[in-house]
């Protein structure tokens, strides 16, 4: 029986969180296999099994980590021809989307991207996709075989199934001409702060802070709360903070217990990445700002005055 194939991003440190999220959802929809390519694939296979992969197709050739998109596309195309899955799931991450797009064009099948959820009905698959900037949600029925769907990170909760995967070594099947876009260096901004996408509390800043010097107020509160600092695309584009802070459509998706929006108007581009937060607190001087419609608590006031006082109050309370 044909089934679902999850493209599991792996690194030497283990499978990516999104791979486990996708497997957890996919096993509700049918029989699910995973494919893991590159260094760390073998080690990742055990965990992929524990999250629901029945089989893990793997190859740990270094070329998958050394060259962007093309080697993985070659290998996947060969695997799909043999296994003929009905549905292939990718994370909507910067690495997976490169592969998914090339694969769709190679197989001549369209791709449903940026999905928030997926369900099966009547022998097919339907994906929920933010539409019109996120104000609406469209249900798209996939027309092609295989259906290729990219799902935003943090759309599903990862949960263990306790299963054990059969490991299936596959051919790398990399064409000679596919070693082209070479990753010659990797620079990771190492930070001892809590990781933004895993933080229980996120304090994020936007243009309403007034200037880059005031981002320190956001970081100060985040640190007092033991959380992480984030930012809107507007201030990342303006160069106030690096892209690794960006939350939203083109940045990270977060689902913290508490999200504090400081000087953020609430453009859809941003809110699609944070509206899954449990409690949203917004501080904005504009009482009409769209973010206040999302917020559980909206404070209309001067963010540059409120943040320092709030940080002091948090420190006093936590110190007590």
């Amino acid at each position: 029986m044909a089934g679902i194939l999850v493209y599991a991003e792996v690194a030497e440190a283990g499978p990516a969180a999104i791979a486990l999220e996708l497997l957890s959802k996919a096993r509700e929809l049918g029989q699910v296999d995973a494919v893991a390519l590159g260094p760390g694939a073998r080690e990742a296979a055990v965990r992929l099994g524990a999250y629901g992969a029945r089989r893990v197709f793997l190859n740990d050739d270094r070329a998958f980590a050394e060259y962007l998109a093309e080697p993985a596309t070659d290998c996947l195309a060969a695997l799909i021809q043999r296994e003929s899955p009905d549905l292939i799931l990718f994370g909507f991450t910067s690495d997976s989307r490169e592969v998914a797009g090339r694969l769709g064009a190679r197989l001549d099948v369209g791709v449903i991207s940026n999905a928030l959820d997926i369900s099966s009905a009547g022998g097919g698959y339907t994906a929920q996709v933010p539409y019109f900037g996120g104000a609406r949600v469209a249900s798209y029925r996939a027309n092609n075989h295989p259906a290729i769907v990219l799902v935003r990170p943090k759309s599903f909760e990862a949960s263990e199934s306790g299963g054990q995967a059969e490991m299936v070594e596959i051919e790398a099947a990399i064409a000679e001409g596919s070693r082209r876009s070479r990753i010659s260096e990797r620079h990771d901004e190492v930070s001892d702060q809590v990781k933004l996408e895993d933080a229980r509390i996120v304090v994020a800043g936007g243009r309403g802070l007034g200037g880059p010097e005031n981002f320190a107020l956001v970081e100060g509160l985040a640190s007092a709360l033991g959380g992480a600092a984030g930012a809107t695309r507007a201030i990342v584009d303006a160069g106030w903070v690096p892209y690794s802070f960006q939350i939203g459509q083109t940045g990270k998706t977060v689902r913290p217990g508490v999200y504090i929006a400081a000087g953020i108007s609430g453009a859809m581009q941003h809110t699609v990445g944070m509206k899954g937060a449990k409690v949203i607190v917004a501080i904005n001087k504009d009482a009409q700002a769209p973010i206040l419609k999302l917020a559980d608590l909206g404070v209309v006031g001067d963010v540059t005055k409120i943040l320092p006082r709030l940080t002091e109050a948090v420190k006093a309370k936590r110190g007590a």
Binding site: G104, A135, A138, S139, Y140, R141, A142, D296
Partner: peptide, 14 residues
């Protein structure tokens, strides 16, 4: 086309 639109609804409001 990759997909057919089944429905379009307002996103769940908080």
């Amino acid at each position: 086309p990759a997909e057919s639109v089944e429905s379009i609804e307002d996103a769940a409001a908080r």
